[in-house]
């Protein structure tokens, strides 16, 4: 596992950009940190390229019809899209069956 942040992950641009406050990552809840860490760890282990996850993430954000600069307060937040993208990538790669806990 690499000991430094990967630029293609840390510096994502556009709608997928990581929420930051003066550079520091912002997480509201512990589960957001977990979903971030799981998605990045599996990528670093080579289970999927980062672009594959990023495209999934952007697709989830697009599907929510959310403009990141004018968000709908009733729509899911940024890391909910990470979670949805992770669940789909896990199912596609066969690493895990679709979650049944909803």
């Amino acid at each position: 596992m690499s000991e430094t942040a990967r630029e293609d992950i840390a510096n994502m641009d556009g709608p997928a950009a990581l929420p930051r406050s003066s550079g520091e990552l912002v997480f509201h809840d512990t589960w957001e940190q977990r979903v971030f860490a799981i998605a990045v760890s599996l990528c670093e282990q080579g289970h999927y390229p980062w672009d594959a996850f990023r495209e999934r993430l952007i697709a989830e954000i697009d599907a929510a019809h959310e403009d990141p600069w004018h968000p709908d307060p009733g729509a899911p937040g940024y890391y909910e899209h990470w979670l949805a993208a992770l669940e789909k990538v896990l199912a596609e790669t066969g690493l895990a069956p679709p979650a049944n806990t909803r």
């Binding site: 809840d29 589960w31 977990r34 909910e80 979670l83 896990l90 979650a99 049944n100 806990t101 909803r102």
Partner: peptide, 8 residues
């Protein structure tokens, strides 16, 4: 959301 992440 916590439950979904914990399951994974």
């Amino acid at each position: 959301l916590e439950a979904r992440v914990k399951a994974i």
